[in-house]
Nucleic acid binder design. Structure first.
Length: 556
RNA sequence: AGGGGCAUAGCCAAGCGGUAAGGCAGCGGGUUUUGAUCCCGUCAUGCGAAGGUUCGAAUCCUUCUGCCCCUGCCA
Protein backbone atom coordinates (compact mmCIF):
# COMPACT_ATOMS: atom_id res chain seq x y z
CA UNK A 1 0.00 0.00 0.00
CA UNK A 2 1.45 3.28 -1.11
CA UNK A 3 0.37 6.74 -0.08
CA UNK A 4 1.84 8.53 -3.06
CA UNK A 5 -0.32 9.14 -6.06
CA UNK A 6 0.81 7.13 -9.06
CA UNK A 7 1.87 9.05 -12.13
CA UNK A 8 -0.07 9.05 -15.36
CA UNK A 9 1.53 8.38 -18.73
CA UNK A 10 2.37 11.99 -19.49
CA UNK A 11 4.08 12.41 -16.15
CA UNK A 12 6.09 9.30 -16.91
CA UNK A 13 7.10 10.66 -20.30
CA UNK A 14 8.13 14.02 -18.88
CA UNK A 15 10.03 12.47 -15.98
CA UNK A 16 11.91 10.33 -18.47
CA UNK A 17 12.64 13.23 -20.83
CA UNK A 18 14.01 15.25 -17.93
CA UNK A 19 16.07 12.30 -16.67
CA UNK A 20 17.45 11.75 -20.18
CA UNK A 21 18.30 15.46 -20.42
CA UNK A 22 16.18 15.57 -23.55
CA UNK A 23 14.78 18.74 -22.06
CA UNK A 24 15.98 20.89 -19.21
CA UNK A 25 12.65 22.61 -18.78
CA UNK A 26 9.07 21.66 -19.41
CA UNK A 27 7.02 24.06 -21.51
CA UNK A 28 3.36 23.35 -22.18
CA UNK A 29 0.48 25.41 -23.47
CA UNK A 30 -3.28 25.63 -23.32
CA UNK A 31 -4.37 26.54 -26.85
CA UNK A 32 -8.12 27.29 -27.04
CA UNK A 33 -9.80 28.64 -30.14
CA UNK A 34 -11.82 31.69 -29.06
CA UNK A 35 -15.03 30.45 -30.63
CA UNK A 36 -17.06 29.61 -27.53
CA UNK A 37 -16.99 29.39 -23.79
CA UNK A 38 -14.77 26.98 -21.88
CA UNK A 39 -16.42 23.97 -20.27
CA UNK A 40 -15.52 21.20 -17.85
CA UNK A 41 -13.71 19.34 -20.63
CA UNK A 42 -11.42 22.31 -21.16
CA UNK A 43 -10.88 22.44 -17.42
CA UNK A 44 -9.28 19.01 -17.68
CA UNK A 45 -6.93 20.26 -20.40
CA UNK A 46 -6.14 23.41 -18.42
CA UNK A 47 -5.38 21.50 -15.23
CA UNK A 48 -3.28 19.05 -17.20
CA UNK A 49 -1.15 21.59 -19.03
CA UNK A 50 -0.75 24.12 -16.23
CA UNK A 51 -0.52 21.35 -13.67
CA UNK A 52 2.31 19.59 -15.50
CA UNK A 53 4.26 22.82 -15.85
CA UNK A 54 3.74 23.53 -12.16
CA UNK A 55 4.70 20.04 -11.08
CA UNK A 56 7.91 19.96 -13.09
CA UNK A 57 8.91 23.55 -12.45
CA UNK A 58 8.26 24.62 -16.03
CA UNK A 59 6.03 27.12 -17.77
CA UNK A 60 2.69 27.04 -19.48
CA UNK A 61 1.50 29.47 -22.13
CA UNK A 62 -2.04 30.60 -22.77
CA UNK A 63 -2.29 30.78 -26.53
CA UNK A 64 -5.32 31.54 -28.60
CA UNK A 65 -5.44 29.41 -31.70
CA UNK A 66 -7.12 32.12 -33.70
CA UNK A 67 -6.67 31.00 -37.27
CA UNK A 68 -10.33 31.17 -38.29
CA UNK A 69 -11.70 34.72 -38.03
CA UNK A 70 -15.11 33.57 -39.22
CA UNK A 71 -15.88 31.76 -36.04
CA UNK A 72 -13.99 33.72 -33.46
CA UNK A 73 -14.70 36.76 -31.38
CA UNK A 74 -13.05 39.00 -28.79
CA UNK A 75 -15.93 38.22 -26.42
CA UNK A 76 -14.68 34.65 -26.24
CA UNK A 77 -11.07 35.72 -25.77
CA UNK A 78 -12.07 37.79 -22.75
CA UNK A 79 -14.23 35.06 -21.25
CA UNK A 80 -11.52 32.43 -21.67
CA UNK A 81 -8.89 34.63 -20.03
CA UNK A 82 -11.20 35.18 -17.07
CA UNK A 83 -11.97 31.47 -16.76
CA UNK A 84 -8.35 30.35 -16.80
CA UNK A 85 -7.42 32.97 -14.23
CA UNK A 86 -10.38 32.03 -12.05
CA UNK A 87 -9.36 28.39 -12.14
CA UNK A 88 -6.23 29.56 -10.41
CA UNK A 89 -3.57 29.41 -13.08
CA UNK A 90 -1.08 31.98 -14.28
CA UNK A 91 0.30 31.67 -17.77
CA UNK A 92 3.90 32.45 -18.58
CA UNK A 93 4.49 35.99 -19.84
CA UNK A 94 2.05 37.65 -22.17
CA UNK A 95 -1.01 35.99 -23.60
CA UNK A 96 -0.06 34.47 -26.94
CA UNK A 97 -1.96 34.47 -30.21
CA UNK A 98 -1.44 32.25 -33.24
CA UNK A 99 -2.28 35.35 -35.26
CA UNK A 100 0.84 37.11 -34.02
CA UNK A 101 2.86 34.48 -35.89
CA UNK A 102 1.10 34.99 -39.22
CA UNK A 103 4.14 36.72 -40.75
CA UNK A 104 6.40 33.82 -39.89
CA UNK A 105 3.85 31.27 -41.02
CA UNK A 106 3.57 33.09 -44.32
CA UNK A 107 7.35 33.00 -44.76
CA UNK A 108 7.33 29.28 -44.03
CA UNK A 109 4.62 28.72 -46.61
CA UNK A 110 6.88 30.46 -49.11
CA UNK A 111 9.69 28.20 -47.97
CA UNK A 112 7.69 25.09 -48.73
CA UNK A 113 6.74 26.41 -52.15
CA UNK A 114 10.39 27.12 -52.95
CA UNK A 115 11.27 23.61 -51.86
CA UNK A 116 8.63 22.28 -54.22
CA UNK A 117 6.63 20.97 -51.29
CA UNK A 118 3.56 23.16 -51.61
CA UNK A 119 1.37 24.37 -54.43
CA UNK A 120 -1.62 26.56 -55.10
CA UNK A 121 -4.60 24.45 -56.05
CA UNK A 122 -7.59 25.84 -57.93
CA UNK A 123 -9.83 22.82 -57.51
CA UNK A 124 -13.25 23.80 -56.16
CA UNK A 125 -14.20 22.42 -52.75
CA UNK A 126 -16.39 19.81 -54.41
CA UNK A 127 -13.70 18.80 -56.85
CA UNK A 128 -11.13 18.64 -54.12
CA UNK A 129 -13.37 16.28 -52.15
CA UNK A 130 -13.73 14.00 -55.16
CA UNK A 131 -9.98 14.02 -55.77
CA UNK A 132 -9.32 13.19 -52.13
CA UNK A 133 -10.76 9.69 -52.43
CA UNK A 134 -12.21 8.08 -49.34
CA UNK A 135 -11.34 5.75 -46.48
CA UNK A 136 -11.08 2.77 -48.82
CA UNK A 137 -9.73 4.34 -51.98
CA UNK A 138 -6.65 6.39 -52.67
CA UNK A 139 -7.08 9.92 -53.89
CA UNK A 140 -5.65 11.23 -57.12
CA UNK A 141 -3.30 14.08 -57.79
CA UNK A 142 -4.68 17.53 -58.37
CA UNK A 143 -4.04 18.82 -61.91
CA UNK A 144 -2.36 21.82 -60.25
CA UNK A 145 0.04 19.63 -58.30
CA UNK A 146 3.00 19.90 -60.64
CA UNK A 147 3.00 23.50 -61.62
CA UNK A 148 6.32 25.32 -61.41
CA UNK A 149 7.68 26.88 -58.28
CA UNK A 150 7.63 30.31 -59.96
CA UNK A 151 4.01 29.90 -60.92
CA UNK A 152 3.09 28.86 -57.39
CA UNK A 153 5.02 31.70 -55.85
CA UNK A 154 3.23 34.18 -58.08
CA UNK A 155 -0.15 32.61 -57.47
CA UNK A 156 0.29 32.53 -53.71
CA UNK A 157 1.24 36.20 -53.82
CA UNK A 158 -1.99 36.88 -55.69
CA UNK A 159 -3.88 34.98 -53.00
CA UNK A 160 -2.27 37.09 -50.32
CA UNK A 161 -2.95 40.29 -52.26
CA UNK A 162 -6.65 39.52 -52.40
CA UNK A 163 -6.81 38.95 -56.13
CA UNK A 164 -8.80 35.75 -55.74
CA UNK A 165 -12.24 35.29 -54.27
CA UNK A 166 -12.87 33.12 -51.23
CA UNK A 167 -12.88 29.50 -52.28
CA UNK A 168 -11.14 30.15 -55.57
CA UNK A 169 -7.95 28.43 -54.52
CA UNK A 170 -5.90 27.20 -51.57
CA UNK A 171 -2.28 26.49 -50.79
CA UNK A 172 -1.65 22.77 -50.30
CA UNK A 173 1.27 20.71 -49.12
CA UNK A 174 2.57 18.19 -51.64
CA UNK A 175 2.67 14.95 -49.67
CA UNK A 176 0.82 11.84 -50.84
CA UNK A 177 -2.66 11.59 -52.31
CA UNK A 178 -2.63 7.84 -51.74
CA UNK A 179 -1.72 7.99 -48.06
CA UNK A 180 -3.96 5.79 -45.89
CA UNK A 181 -4.00 8.68 -43.41
CA UNK A 182 -6.37 11.17 -44.97
CA UNK A 183 -4.54 14.04 -43.31
CA UNK A 184 -1.55 13.43 -45.55
CA UNK A 185 -3.48 13.66 -48.85
CA UNK A 186 -2.06 17.07 -49.75
CA UNK A 187 -3.56 18.95 -46.82
CA UNK A 188 -4.61 22.57 -47.09
CA UNK A 189 -2.18 25.09 -45.62
CA UNK A 190 -3.87 28.39 -46.43
CA UNK A 191 -7.35 29.38 -47.47
CA UNK A 192 -8.83 32.73 -48.47
CA UNK A 193 -11.04 34.48 -45.93
CA UNK A 194 -11.84 38.06 -46.72
CA UNK A 195 -12.89 39.06 -43.29
CA UNK A 196 -11.76 41.14 -40.40
CA UNK A 197 -9.79 39.30 -37.74
CA UNK A 198 -10.33 40.15 -34.07
CA UNK A 199 -6.58 40.55 -33.54
CA UNK A 200 -5.06 41.43 -36.91
CA UNK A 201 -7.87 43.47 -38.40
CA UNK A 202 -7.75 43.58 -42.19
CA UNK A 203 -4.05 42.81 -42.56
CA UNK A 204 -4.69 39.39 -44.02
CA UNK A 205 -7.14 37.81 -46.38
CA UNK A 206 -5.49 34.39 -46.26
CA UNK A 207 -5.38 32.36 -43.07
CA UNK A 208 -3.44 29.23 -42.19
CA UNK A 209 -5.26 26.06 -41.28
CA UNK A 210 -4.88 24.35 -37.93
CA UNK A 211 -2.40 21.81 -39.21
CA UNK A 212 -0.10 24.38 -40.75
CA UNK A 213 -0.26 26.54 -37.64
CA UNK A 214 -0.29 24.50 -34.49
CA UNK A 215 3.02 22.68 -34.54
CA UNK A 216 4.84 25.74 -35.77
CA UNK A 217 3.30 27.84 -33.00
CA UNK A 218 4.57 25.24 -30.56
CA UNK A 219 8.03 25.39 -32.10
CA UNK A 220 8.13 29.18 -31.98
CA UNK A 221 7.18 29.18 -28.31
CA UNK A 222 9.59 26.41 -27.44
CA UNK A 223 6.83 24.09 -26.30
CA UNK A 224 8.38 20.79 -25.28
CA UNK A 225 5.25 18.72 -24.80
CA UNK A 226 2.29 19.63 -26.97
CA UNK A 227 -0.67 17.95 -25.40
CA UNK A 228 -3.94 17.53 -27.25
CA UNK A 229 -6.91 15.23 -27.38
CA UNK A 230 -7.11 11.82 -29.05
CA UNK A 231 -8.78 12.91 -32.28
CA UNK A 232 -5.59 14.72 -33.21
CA UNK A 233 -3.48 11.58 -33.12
CA UNK A 234 -4.05 11.15 -36.87
CA UNK A 235 -2.65 14.62 -37.36
CA UNK A 236 0.63 13.83 -35.65
CA UNK A 237 2.39 12.58 -38.81
CA UNK A 238 1.48 15.88 -40.44
CA UNK A 239 2.56 17.83 -37.35
CA UNK A 240 5.92 16.08 -37.58
CA UNK A 241 6.13 16.61 -41.35
CA UNK A 242 5.97 20.38 -40.95
CA UNK A 243 8.47 20.32 -38.11
CA UNK A 244 10.85 18.30 -40.32
CA UNK A 245 10.39 20.36 -43.45
CA UNK A 246 10.44 23.86 -42.04
CA UNK A 247 13.30 25.90 -40.51
CA UNK A 248 11.64 25.86 -37.10
CA UNK A 249 13.63 26.84 -33.98
CA UNK A 250 12.66 23.74 -31.98
CA UNK A 251 11.16 20.31 -32.34
CA UNK A 252 8.14 19.96 -30.10
CA UNK A 253 6.38 16.62 -29.73
CA UNK A 254 2.68 16.01 -29.70
CA UNK A 255 1.01 13.71 -27.17
CA UNK A 256 -2.65 12.81 -27.02
CA UNK A 257 -4.97 12.05 -24.12
CA UNK A 258 -8.66 11.18 -23.92
CA UNK A 259 -11.05 14.07 -23.59
CA UNK A 260 -13.44 14.18 -20.66
CA UNK A 261 -17.04 13.14 -21.07
CA UNK A 262 -19.57 13.41 -18.25
CA UNK A 263 -22.87 11.60 -18.05
CA UNK A 264 -26.08 13.66 -17.88
CA UNK A 265 -24.11 16.39 -19.61
CA UNK A 266 -23.39 17.72 -23.08
CA UNK A 267 -20.02 19.26 -23.79
CA UNK A 268 -20.13 19.98 -27.46
CA UNK A 269 -19.65 23.69 -28.13
CA UNK A 270 -22.28 23.51 -30.83
CA UNK A 271 -24.91 22.08 -28.49
CA UNK A 272 -24.04 24.38 -25.63
CA UNK A 273 -24.37 27.30 -28.01
CA UNK A 274 -27.73 25.98 -29.14
CA UNK A 275 -28.96 25.84 -25.54
CA UNK A 276 -27.96 29.47 -25.16
CA UNK A 277 -29.23 30.71 -28.53
CA UNK A 278 -32.60 29.01 -28.21
CA UNK A 279 -33.10 30.25 -24.68
CA UNK A 280 -33.23 26.91 -22.92
CA UNK A 281 -30.85 28.34 -20.39
CA UNK A 282 -30.00 31.78 -19.07
CA UNK A 283 -26.83 32.34 -21.07
CA UNK A 284 -23.44 30.68 -21.20
CA UNK A 285 -23.08 31.11 -17.47
CA UNK A 286 -26.43 29.62 -16.51
CA UNK A 287 -25.76 27.73 -13.27
CA UNK A 288 -26.91 24.50 -14.96
CA UNK A 289 -24.36 24.78 -17.74
CA UNK A 290 -21.16 22.69 -17.63
CA UNK A 291 -19.25 25.79 -18.67
CA UNK A 292 -16.60 27.10 -16.34
CA UNK A 293 -18.52 30.36 -16.07
CA UNK A 294 -21.71 28.41 -15.34
CA UNK A 295 -20.06 26.37 -12.64
CA UNK A 296 -18.57 29.53 -11.17
CA UNK A 297 -22.00 31.19 -11.02
CA UNK A 298 -23.45 27.99 -9.59
CA UNK A 299 -20.92 28.17 -6.78
CA UNK A 300 -18.52 25.38 -7.67
CA UNK A 301 -15.16 26.38 -6.15
CA UNK A 302 -12.20 26.46 -8.52
CA UNK A 303 -10.40 24.19 -6.09
CA UNK A 304 -13.16 21.60 -6.46
CA UNK A 305 -12.82 21.58 -10.22
CA UNK A 306 -9.07 21.17 -9.88
CA UNK A 307 -9.57 18.35 -7.40
CA UNK A 308 -12.01 16.66 -9.74
CA UNK A 309 -9.56 16.85 -12.64
CA UNK A 310 -6.96 15.32 -10.40
CA UNK A 311 -9.33 12.53 -9.37
CA UNK A 312 -10.28 11.39 -12.86
CA UNK A 313 -6.76 10.84 -14.08
CA UNK A 314 -5.28 11.12 -17.55
CA UNK A 315 -5.26 8.22 -20.00
CA UNK A 316 -5.87 7.40 -23.64
CA UNK A 317 -9.00 5.37 -22.94
CA UNK A 318 -12.21 7.11 -23.95
CA UNK A 319 -14.34 7.29 -20.84
CA UNK A 320 -17.46 8.87 -19.45
CA UNK A 321 -17.12 9.99 -15.88
CA UNK A 322 -20.07 9.94 -13.49
CA UNK A 323 -21.15 13.51 -12.64
CA UNK A 324 -21.43 12.18 -9.12
CA UNK A 325 -17.67 12.36 -8.94
CA UNK A 326 -17.69 16.06 -9.80
CA UNK A 327 -20.39 16.58 -7.20
CA UNK A 328 -18.30 14.74 -4.63
CA UNK A 329 -15.36 17.06 -5.31
CA UNK A 330 -17.61 20.08 -4.93
CA UNK A 331 -19.10 18.88 -1.63
CA UNK A 332 -15.72 17.84 -0.33
CA UNK A 333 -14.25 21.28 -0.97
CA UNK A 334 -17.30 23.19 0.26
CA UNK A 335 -17.65 21.12 3.41
CA UNK A 336 -14.18 22.17 4.35
CA UNK A 337 -14.38 25.83 3.45
CA UNK A 338 -17.98 27.02 3.60
CA UNK A 339 -19.17 29.02 6.63
CA UNK A 340 -22.38 27.58 8.10
CA UNK A 341 -25.63 29.48 8.29
CA UNK A 342 -29.31 28.77 8.64
CA UNK A 343 -31.98 29.58 6.10
CA UNK A 344 -35.60 28.48 6.13
CA UNK A 345 -36.78 27.87 2.59
CA UNK A 346 -40.51 27.31 3.27
CA UNK A 347 -41.24 29.15 6.51
CA UNK A 348 -43.73 27.93 9.11
CA UNK A 349 -44.21 30.20 12.10
CA UNK A 350 -43.54 28.87 15.55
CA UNK A 351 -44.63 30.86 18.61
CA UNK A 352 -42.65 30.02 21.71
CA UNK A 353 -45.36 30.75 24.23
CA UNK A 354 -43.20 30.58 27.31
CA UNK A 355 -40.57 32.96 25.95
CA UNK A 356 -41.15 36.56 26.89
CA UNK A 357 -39.24 39.71 26.49
CA UNK A 358 -36.38 40.58 24.17
CA UNK A 359 -34.34 38.42 21.93
CA UNK A 360 -31.78 36.14 23.43
CA UNK A 361 -28.52 35.83 21.56
CA UNK A 362 -27.37 32.36 20.62
CA UNK A 363 -23.76 31.85 19.66
CA UNK A 364 -22.75 29.27 17.08
CA UNK A 365 -19.45 28.43 15.46
CA UNK A 366 -19.09 29.51 11.85
CA UNK A 367 -17.79 26.02 11.15
CA UNK A 368 -18.35 23.00 13.42
CA UNK A 369 -14.95 21.50 12.74
CA UNK A 370 -12.87 24.64 12.52
CA UNK A 371 -12.98 27.00 15.49
CA UNK A 372 -10.59 29.37 13.74
CA UNK A 373 -13.40 30.46 11.47
CA UNK A 374 -15.00 32.22 14.41
CA UNK A 375 -18.51 32.52 15.77
CA UNK A 376 -21.80 34.00 14.70
CA UNK A 377 -24.70 35.39 16.70
CA UNK A 378 -28.28 34.30 16.23
CA UNK A 379 -31.19 36.20 17.74
CA UNK A 380 -33.70 33.86 19.36
CA UNK A 381 -37.12 35.46 19.60
CA UNK A 382 -40.64 34.55 20.68
CA UNK A 383 -41.66 34.07 17.06
CA UNK A 384 -39.53 31.88 14.86
CA UNK A 385 -39.66 30.21 11.47
CA UNK A 386 -38.93 26.57 10.91
CA UNK A 387 -39.11 24.56 7.69
CA UNK A 388 -42.70 23.56 6.83
CA UNK A 389 -41.60 20.02 6.16
CA UNK A 390 -39.92 19.81 9.56
CA UNK A 391 -43.25 19.70 11.37
CA UNK A 392 -46.06 17.16 11.33
CA UNK A 393 -49.18 16.37 13.30
CA UNK A 394 -48.76 12.72 12.43
CA UNK A 395 -47.72 11.16 15.71
CA UNK A 396 -47.57 7.69 14.21
CA UNK A 397 -44.30 8.37 12.40
CA UNK A 398 -41.43 6.42 13.94
CA UNK A 399 -38.51 8.24 15.53
CA UNK A 400 -36.23 6.75 12.92
CA UNK A 401 -38.35 7.84 10.02
CA UNK A 402 -39.05 11.40 11.13
CA UNK A 403 -36.32 13.02 13.18
CA UNK A 404 -38.02 16.40 13.36
CA UNK A 405 -40.87 18.11 15.20
CA UNK A 406 -44.04 16.16 15.86
CA UNK A 407 -47.09 17.53 17.66
CA UNK A 408 -46.70 16.83 21.35
CA UNK A 409 -43.03 15.97 21.09
CA UNK A 410 -39.64 17.66 21.32
CA UNK A 411 -37.02 18.73 18.86
CA UNK A 412 -33.69 20.53 19.21
CA UNK A 413 -33.48 23.89 17.49
CA UNK A 414 -29.96 23.93 16.13
CA UNK A 415 -27.69 25.89 18.46
CA UNK A 416 -30.57 26.88 20.72
CA UNK A 417 -33.33 25.44 22.91
CA UNK A 418 -35.22 22.22 22.77
CA UNK A 419 -38.87 22.96 22.15
CA UNK A 420 -42.07 20.98 22.46
CA UNK A 421 -44.95 21.44 20.03
CA UNK A 422 -48.17 21.89 21.93
CA UNK A 423 -50.73 23.16 19.50
CA UNK A 424 -51.37 24.20 15.92
CA UNK A 425 -53.34 27.04 14.39
CA UNK A 426 -54.99 26.40 11.04
CA UNK A 427 -56.59 28.58 8.42
CA UNK A 428 -60.08 28.02 7.05
CA UNK A 429 -58.70 25.50 4.53
CA UNK A 430 -57.14 23.43 7.24
CA UNK A 431 -53.58 24.46 6.47
CA UNK A 432 -51.27 24.77 9.43
CA UNK A 433 -50.25 28.40 9.69
CA UNK A 434 -48.72 28.43 13.13
CA UNK A 435 -47.30 26.07 15.68
CA UNK A 436 -47.42 26.90 19.36
CA UNK A 437 -44.56 25.51 21.33
CA UNK A 438 -42.79 25.80 24.64
CA UNK A 439 -39.09 25.77 25.20
CA UNK A 440 -37.40 23.55 27.73
CA UNK A 441 -35.37 25.84 30.03
CA UNK A 442 -31.61 25.46 30.34
CA UNK A 443 -31.22 23.33 27.22
CA UNK A 444 -29.00 25.74 25.28
CA UNK A 445 -25.70 23.94 24.89
CA UNK A 446 -26.86 21.38 27.40
CA UNK A 447 -28.49 18.01 27.37
CA UNK A 448 -32.20 17.87 28.14
CA UNK A 449 -33.54 16.70 31.49
CA UNK A 450 -34.75 13.19 32.05
CA UNK A 451 -37.91 12.39 30.14
CA UNK A 452 -37.34 14.96 27.39
CA UNK A 453 -36.34 13.13 24.20
CA UNK A 454 -35.97 15.34 21.15
CA UNK A 455 -36.40 13.43 17.89
CA UNK A 456 -33.67 15.37 16.16
CA UNK A 457 -32.22 18.75 15.30
CA UNK A 458 -33.82 21.24 12.93
CA UNK A 459 -32.80 24.64 11.63
CA UNK A 460 -34.68 27.82 12.39
CA UNK A 461 -34.52 31.58 12.07
CA UNK A 462 -36.03 34.45 14.03
CA UNK A 463 -39.33 35.59 12.54
CA UNK A 464 -38.55 39.19 13.36
CA UNK A 465 -34.82 39.44 12.78
CA UNK A 466 -33.93 37.77 9.49
CA UNK A 467 -33.22 38.58 5.89
CA UNK A 468 -35.62 37.85 3.06
CA UNK A 469 -34.24 36.09 0.06
CA UNK A 470 -35.02 34.17 -3.07
CA UNK A 471 -33.56 30.72 -3.43
CA UNK A 472 -32.96 28.85 -6.65
CA UNK A 473 -32.71 25.10 -6.57
CA UNK A 474 -31.09 23.34 -9.50
CA UNK A 475 -31.30 19.81 -10.74
CA UNK A 476 -29.38 18.26 -13.61
CA UNK A 477 -30.13 19.85 -16.97
CA UNK A 478 -30.74 16.50 -18.63
CA UNK A 479 -32.67 13.47 -17.49
CA UNK A 480 -30.90 11.18 -19.92
CA UNK A 481 -27.58 9.72 -18.90
CA UNK A 482 -26.20 10.28 -22.37
CA UNK A 483 -28.27 13.04 -23.99
CA UNK A 484 -25.61 13.33 -26.66
CA UNK A 485 -25.54 9.77 -27.94
CA UNK A 486 -27.14 7.98 -30.83
CA UNK A 487 -29.55 9.74 -33.13
CA UNK A 488 -31.75 11.22 -30.44
CA UNK A 489 -32.34 14.92 -30.12
CA UNK A 490 -30.57 16.07 -26.98
CA UNK A 491 -33.24 18.72 -26.42
CA UNK A 492 -35.77 15.96 -25.77
CA UNK A 493 -33.73 14.96 -22.74
CA UNK A 494 -33.95 18.40 -21.15
CA UNK A 495 -35.14 18.18 -17.54
CA UNK A 496 -38.18 20.47 -17.21
CA UNK A 497 -37.60 20.65 -13.47
CA UNK A 498 -33.97 21.67 -13.55
CA UNK A 499 -34.74 25.04 -12.00
CA UNK A 500 -37.04 25.73 -9.06
CA UNK A 501 -37.38 29.26 -7.77
CA UNK A 502 -38.44 29.77 -4.18
CA UNK A 503 -39.27 33.24 -2.99
CA UNK A 504 -39.95 34.22 0.58
CA UNK A 505 -37.13 32.26 2.11
CA UNK A 506 -35.83 33.59 5.43
CA UNK A 507 -32.13 33.55 6.17
CA UNK A 508 -30.30 34.28 9.37
CA UNK A 509 -29.58 37.96 9.79
CA UNK A 510 -25.85 37.68 9.21
CA UNK A 511 -26.44 36.67 5.60
CA UNK A 512 -27.41 40.25 4.87
CA UNK A 513 -23.69 40.76 4.43
CA UNK A 514 -23.22 37.89 1.99
CA UNK A 515 -20.89 38.57 -0.91
CA UNK A 516 -20.90 37.28 -4.46
CA UNK A 517 -18.21 34.65 -4.79
CA UNK A 518 -18.54 33.37 -1.24
CA UNK A 519 -19.97 29.97 -0.48
CA UNK A 520 -22.17 29.10 2.47
CA UNK A 521 -23.62 25.95 3.84
CA UNK A 522 -27.23 26.42 4.84
CA UNK A 523 -27.34 23.69 7.43
CA UNK A 524 -29.48 20.73 6.47
CA UNK A 525 -30.29 22.37 3.13
CA UNK A 526 -27.10 22.38 1.10
CA UNK A 527 -24.44 24.74 -0.19
CA UNK A 528 -25.45 28.12 -1.49
CA UNK A 529 -23.94 31.24 -3.02
CA UNK A 530 -25.25 34.60 -4.09
CA UNK A 531 -26.30 34.65 -7.74
CA UNK A 532 -23.99 37.10 -9.47
CA UNK A 533 -26.54 37.99 -12.10
CA UNK A 534 -29.85 38.43 -10.30
CA UNK A 535 -28.84 39.68 -6.88
CA UNK A 536 -29.44 43.35 -6.22
CA UNK A 537 -29.00 45.47 -3.12
CA UNK A 538 -32.66 45.05 -2.22
CA UNK A 539 -33.02 41.44 -3.31
CA UNK A 540 -30.74 38.59 -2.32
CA UNK A 541 -30.87 35.62 -4.67
CA UNK A 542 -29.11 32.46 -3.57
CA UNK A 543 -28.21 29.61 -5.87
CA UNK A 544 -28.09 26.18 -4.38
CA UNK A 545 -24.71 24.98 -5.54
CA UNK A 546 -25.46 21.44 -4.48
CA UNK A 547 -27.43 19.65 -1.82
CA UNK A 548 -25.92 17.87 1.15
CA UNK A 549 -25.34 14.19 0.62
CA UNK A 550 -28.49 12.35 1.54
CA UNK A 551 -28.03 8.76 2.57
CA UNK A 552 -31.47 8.60 3.99
CA UNK A 553 -33.81 9.71 1.22
CA UNK A 554 -33.60 6.54 -0.86
CA UNK A 555 -33.60 4.19 2.08
CA UNK A 556 -36.69 4.72 4.17
C1' A B 1 -4.77 -5.51 -46.36
C1' G B 2 -7.74 1.67 -45.41
C1' G B 3 -5.29 4.37 -41.23
C1' G B 4 -5.04 5.66 -36.01
C1' G B 5 -6.44 4.70 -30.85
C1' C B 6 -8.50 1.92 -26.68
C1' A B 7 -10.23 -2.61 -23.65
C1' U B 8 -8.73 -4.00 -15.45
C1' A B 9 -15.51 -3.86 -10.69
C1' G B 10 -21.65 0.03 -11.75
C1' C B 11 -18.05 4.67 -12.97
C1' C B 12 -12.88 6.62 -13.09
C1' A B 13 -8.03 4.31 -12.53
C1' A B 14 -2.94 2.03 -10.72
C1' G B 15 -0.29 -2.01 -12.46
C1' C B 16 5.44 -2.49 -16.90
C1' G B 17 6.90 -11.29 -15.41
C1' G B 18 6.43 -12.63 -8.70
C1' U B 19 0.52 -13.82 -7.46
C1' A B 20 -5.19 -7.38 -8.69
C1' A B 21 -3.39 0.09 -5.43
C1' G B 22 -6.57 4.15 -4.77
C1' G B 23 -11.01 7.20 -5.57
C1' C B 24 -16.49 7.69 -6.72
C1' A B 25 -20.95 4.94 -6.11
C1' G B 26 -22.99 0.85 -3.13
C1' C B 27 -23.51 -2.11 1.31
C1' G B 28 -22.84 -2.89 6.95
C1' G B 29 -21.51 -0.48 11.57
C1' G B 30 -19.71 3.66 15.04
C1' U B 31 -19.50 9.06 16.49
C1' U B 32 -22.50 13.45 15.93
C1' U B 33 -26.85 19.60 18.52
C1' U B 34 -26.55 19.47 10.28
C1' G B 35 -30.55 12.58 8.23
C1' A B 36 -23.94 16.49 6.68
C1' U B 37 -18.87 15.90 8.03
C1' C B 38 -15.74 12.22 10.38
C1' C B 39 -14.32 7.01 11.62
C1' C B 40 -14.30 1.54 10.92
C1' G B 41 -15.47 -2.59 7.89
C1' U B 42 -17.05 -4.64 3.09
C1' C B 43 -16.93 -4.58 -2.25
C1' A B 44 -12.55 -8.34 -9.14
C1' U B 45 -9.74 -16.40 -7.44
C1' G B 46 -10.53 -11.80 -11.55
C1' C B 47 -7.90 -8.07 -15.81
C1' G B 48 -12.58 -8.18 -23.62
C1' A B 49 -12.09 -13.80 -25.57
C1' A B 50 -9.30 -18.12 -26.91
C1' G B 51 -4.73 -20.38 -27.47
C1' G B 52 0.65 -20.29 -26.44
C1' U B 53 5.58 -19.17 -23.76
C1' U B 54 7.05 -19.52 -18.44
C1' C B 55 8.19 -22.47 -12.09
C1' G B 56 4.95 -18.19 -12.33
C1' A B 57 1.10 -13.92 -17.11
C1' A B 58 -3.45 -8.30 -16.32
C1' U B 59 1.77 -7.76 -17.84
C1' C B 60 5.37 -11.50 -23.23
C1' C B 61 3.64 -14.03 -28.18
C1' U B 62 -0.50 -15.45 -31.63
C1' U B 63 -5.38 -15.20 -33.27
C1' C B 64 -10.09 -13.27 -32.49
C1' U B 65 -13.95 -9.79 -30.61
C1' G B 66 -15.86 -5.09 -29.23
C1' C B 67 -15.77 0.26 -28.83
C1' C B 68 -13.87 5.33 -30.28
C1' C B 69 -11.63 8.71 -34.10
C1' C B 70 -10.41 10.05 -39.47
C1' U B 71 -13.15 11.41 -46.27
C1' G B 72 -14.19 20.71 -43.37
C1' C B 73 -11.21 25.61 -47.70
C1' C B 74 -13.24 23.77 -38.61
C1' A B 75 -10.09 23.28 -34.44
Amino acid sequence: MSDTKPQHFLQHIISQDLADKKHTEVVTRFPPEPNGYLHIGHAKAICLNFGLAEEFGGRCNLRFDDTNPGKEDQEYVDAIVEDVRWLGYQWDGEIKYASSYFDTLYEWALHLIREGKAYVCHLSPDEARAYRGNLKEAGKDSPYRNRSIEENLADFEKMRAGEYDEGACVLRAKIDMAAPNMNLRDPILYRIRKMNHHQTGDKWCIYPNYDFAHGQEDAIEGITHSICTLEFADHRPLYDWFIENLPVPAKPRQYEFARLELNYTVTSKRKLKQLVDEGHVDGWNDPRMPTISGMRRRGYPAAAIRKFCDMIGVTKAASTVDVGMLEFAVRDQLNESAPRAMCVLQPLKVVVTNFDGDAETMVQPVHPNNAEMGERKLPFTRELFIEREDFTEDTSLSRKKFKRLVLGEWVRLRGAYIIQANDVVKDSDGNIIEVHATLVPDTVGANPPEGVNPRGVIHWVSATQNVDCEVRLYDRLFNDESPDSGDKNFLDALNPESLQIISGAKAEIGLAGAQVGEAYQFERAGYFCLDSKNTRADRLVFNRTIGLKDNWANKV
